[in-house]
């Protein structure tokens, strides 16, 4: 399994609708609305890189998404 964070920059005024669409995408396990350099951070769990590409594509197709930056997780320590 591949886990990745996708950091999303949005156009102003489109965050709410975009989140509603992201909540329907199957491989997204967490959506965080953030204040800072980015607007939304999503966590994705996929079987392979091809599936990751599909999820990224789906996110980029959502209206209001200006830029996505994908960060593939190599190692993780969590509570």
């Amino acid at each position: 399994m591949i886990a990745a964070y996708i950091l999303i920059e949005m156009r102003p005024g489109s965050t709410d609708k975009a989140i509603e669409k992201m909540r329907k995408i199957e491989n997204i396990v967490k959506i965080s609305v953030v204040a800072g350099e980015y607007d939304i951070v999503v966590r994705v769990h996929v079987k392979n890189l091809n599936s990751l590409l599909k999820v990224t594509n789906k996110i980029q197709m959502i209206e209001g998404v200006r830029k996505t930056t994908t960060q593939v997780i190599e190692k993780e320590i969590a509570l």
Binding site: A4, Y5, L7, T69, T70, Q71, V72, I73, E74, K75, E76, I77, A78, L79
Partner: peptide, 28 residues
């Protein structure tokens, strides 16, 4: 070294996840 820095980040109280990532950043 990535592993050593990861451990130092993990030792900070309040940290719940430390992830080493490939992309623009090195850690999230």
């Amino acid at each position: 070294p990535i592993e050593e820095t990861m451990q130092k980040l993990w030792d900070i109280p309040g940290v719940t996840h430390v992830t080493a990532v490939a992309g623009t950043y090195d850690f999230i």
